[in-house]
Design a protein around this nucleic acid. Sequence first.
DNA 1: TTTTTTCTACTGGTTTTCGGGTATTTTTTC
DNA 2: GAAAAAATACCCGAAAACCAGTAGAAAAAA
Lengths: 211, 211
Amino acid sequence: MSISKISVVIVDDHSIVIEGLKSLLEHGHNLDITAHFTMGKPAFEFIGKERPDVILLDINLPDINGIDLCRQIKEAVPETKILALSNYTERNIIMQMLQSGANGYMLKNISGQGLLNGIAAVQNGEIYFSREINEIIGNPSRFELKEVPRLTKREKQVLALVAEGKTTTEIADILHVSPLTIETHRRNLHYKFQVRNVAELVMAATKCQFL
Amino acid sequence: MSISKISVVIVDDHSIVIEGLKSLLEHGHNLDITAHFTMGKPAFEFIGKERPDVILLDINLPDINGIDLCRQIKEAVPETKILALSNYTERNIIMQMLQSGANGYMLKNISGQGLLNGIAAVQNGEIYFSREINEIIGNPSRFELKEVPRLTKREKQVLALVAEGKTTTEIADILHVSPLTIETHRRNLHYKFQVRNVAELVMAATKCQFL
DNA sequence: TTTTTTCTACTGGTTTTCGGGTATTTTTTC
DNA sequence: GAAAAAATACCCGAAAACCAGTAGAAAAAA
């Protein structure tokens, strides 16, 4: 156990949340809330200068995306531990956060004790997830397991126009190519998404957030 | 100004938020946080008995929906002022909350002062919205202005099957009716959504949250 | 009970999509 | 510079969707 307290920085766009975290963390433990920010940029500058131990980082920020901020912080100050604190339960958001170097991920409904456990764990070099997040990571849906098809630029254009209800000839007209070309693109889209008609295609594409 | 303080009850599933609200509201103003709950049911029972002045109500609750809880509270204790405190910026969620009798709606990124203003306003009989909410209510998108078509039970069934990529004959088979009947339903769906083909239909239906 | 809505079914014809191929040119990537 | 990927284009036939109209039975609402 080191003599100095763990320095913690809070980054969250909700002042309510910041107050809550301060209140939950202040009760005589060996950590010190060095600063708190509602914006990403000033937080980044402060972190680069002061090099705190742990950052409680929200994903929704007014100026920049929390996932990008995470990557930037990890690049600038790799030894800083980042604990994501968000409401997002989507598996791919959690994965993006980890990809960006986060040391842990917790939902905002966490208890004060859970929070302290998380901070202690990441400070100790562990990767920490709250209970619900463990569940989400461990139980991917059938949909989440099959990979999102990689579409070419042209295919994305055609897909968007198909979803707008345009017919093959209309699309051909818009893109100044032969309708036969568009039919080929459509056939390839069906193949890539493993579907048999437009209805399924549009549904599959929306689920993969192409639309 | 009455001699007794305004009694406030907080209902939110996040202990962080509860702590934050307590911290922001406790600083020597004329209000008193009577109780706080992370669940709807115990909150409802308490409110029915103690009849507090103002309730800060979240929409996401573990046991019941905040919108339904609002309606129930207003039915049981109509004089109680309900101030919705949520992250939802969707116009139709706000509208549902108002429909259910809420006296105000604020986003969780509100400041301490904004919170106090809101509580004072609803206690004074006003309907209060934070700045962003005023914007959202006042600026409906083109999509939000056109009403959602009312579908019959059968049409909903057909729509769901169409979205699954089923063909007319397959649907007819599943519902044990003539394919010609299904074609009529499809035609009616196209008319109600004002679309010209399945692609548009599926898109329109997903936007209206039918799928 | 009357009226309205919903569900059902049909005729007949046009347009569009879908599935199986093949193949050349252009652009990227290695 | 060679190889791979993407975009282009074509043929053919079958299946499905789309359009316009009509209309009777059943269920729900007035």
